[in-house]
Computed example of a mutant assay.
Amino acid sequence: MGGSILCLGEAVIDFIPVRAEGGAAYRPCLGGSPYNVARALGRLDVPTEYGCAVSTDLFGDQFVEGLTQSRVGQRFLRRLDAPSTLGFVSLEQAEPAYAFFDQGAADRICRDMPSGSALAGVGTLHFGSIALIREPAASAYETLFLREARGPRLISFDPNIRASHVRDEAAYRARLERLLHNADIIKISGADLDWLLPGHAHAEAARNWLGHGAKLVVITHGKAGVSGWTQDSYAHAEALSVEVVDTVGAGDSFMAGLLAGLHEGGCLTRETLISLSPQILHEALAYGQCVASQTCTRRGADSPWREEISALQAPPITFPDHRA
């Protein structure tokens, strides 16, 4: 099934540390994992929608403006008279660490999910991150996820785990297991996988999820590149060397690049995902790496536009076996 990609989940104002006269300071940037994926997809000319609730406050206005500028559809977006979620970022570790302030926030209290009929024209639903931790929205997203799983639309899932935000670890782990066993496309970082399944080889985890019905599993390894598996194919793409400003949003940009590459080649169906060749899989992974690497050269989750990627002579997205 073709159609647009609907990204569902939180929108967060990321306060990024910057140097300032007189000491440390923070710069507010638009963020939130599903929001980042939606904006990155829109900038790559993929038909994209964003679904959640954002505040009626000044930050909510900025979220809407960011979607509009990135050509992201908003028919599933709601505005609520509630505050925006704020996230303060630490860049002292290998991966960014976050402190969230979200009590009563618009994206956290959102429980209204689209009906099946409302999803007409949507081909892929993308879920992930703290939207699946914070109640009551988390349960509403899980219900939608499981309702649509194995139906006509693909389910894409990046857990993007924020362990410090988890209060009931046993319940959260059980939820992740349910979702991972019902997703079509799974993308997960090596760090998240090690938290979720400590001591498990990454290839073993990928084979397990493929055995439960996933069609594509992708594991990112930071500077060590990214690996992808289907039932019959495996590919690895190296990380690209760039001058890194910060890595905020890099994983989300990779996710968008991967989906954009698959969409460009007409591969966002279960049938085509199953039959991806190693070469086609490598092209999609490499394209995702190119998008992510350019995000790392900018402050915050500021992903590149398609024209910028083309100017870099990024790996061609040809997918000759799957074009109409």
Rank of each mutant, 00 (worst) to 15 (best):
Y35L: 05
L281Q: 08
Q289V: 12
A205H: 06
P159A: 00
V46L: 09
A25T: 04
L197W: 04
D184P: 09
A260M: 14
A260N: 14
G32E: 10
T56N: 13
V64Y: 09
V64L: 11
G42R: 06
A118V: 07
A106D: 14
A206H: 01
T297K: 12
V248T: 15
R173F: 01
L41T: 13
G128N: 09
G123R: 07
I186G: 04
T318G: 07
L132M: 02
P47D: 04
G116K: 07
P316I: 02
D81I: 11
E307L: 12
E142C: 03
S275F: 15
F59C: 04
P152C: 14
V46H: 09
A250H: 03
A201H: 02
A292N: 08
R207W: 03
P159S: 07
D194Q: 08
S33I: 04
A105M: 14
A235N: 10
I280P: 00
Q289I: 10
S115M: 04
D158T: 00
L8C: 07
G261R: 13
V72C: 09
D14P: 02
A292E: 09
L193D: 15
G104M: 15
A149R: 06
G23P: 01
E95C: 08
T48Q: 15
G300F: 07
R270G: 05
A174H: 05
M255V: 10
F319V: 09
D184I: 13
L197A: 10
P96D: 00
V242Q: 00
R173A: 02
E243R: 10
S33P: 01
G3H: 12
G128I: 11
L216P: 10
D252M: 05
S117E: 06
F88K: 00
L86Y: 05
D246Y: 13
R270Y: 05
R71M: 04
A94V: 14
R79E: 02
E238K: 09
C7T: 13
I274K: 02
H202L: 09
F76Q: 03
A94K: 08
H282G: 09
R78E: 14
R153P: 13
A203K: 07
R79C: 05
G87M: 08
S189T: 14
R175M: 12
F76Y: 15
D61K: 08
A174T: 07
F100G: 06
P28E: 09
L240M: 08
P278Q: 05
L262G: 03
G123N: 09
G228K: 10
V64D: 01
L180H: 12
F76S: 06
E204P: 00
L30Q: 10
A11E: 08
P34N: 08
S156F: 08
I309M: 07
I133Q: 14
I16P: 07
I5Y: 14
A256S: 15
P198N: 01
T56Y: 01
W195R: 14
A203F: 06
A201D: 04
S241G: 03
E307V: 10
D232W: 03
P114V: 05
A201S: 03
K215A: 12
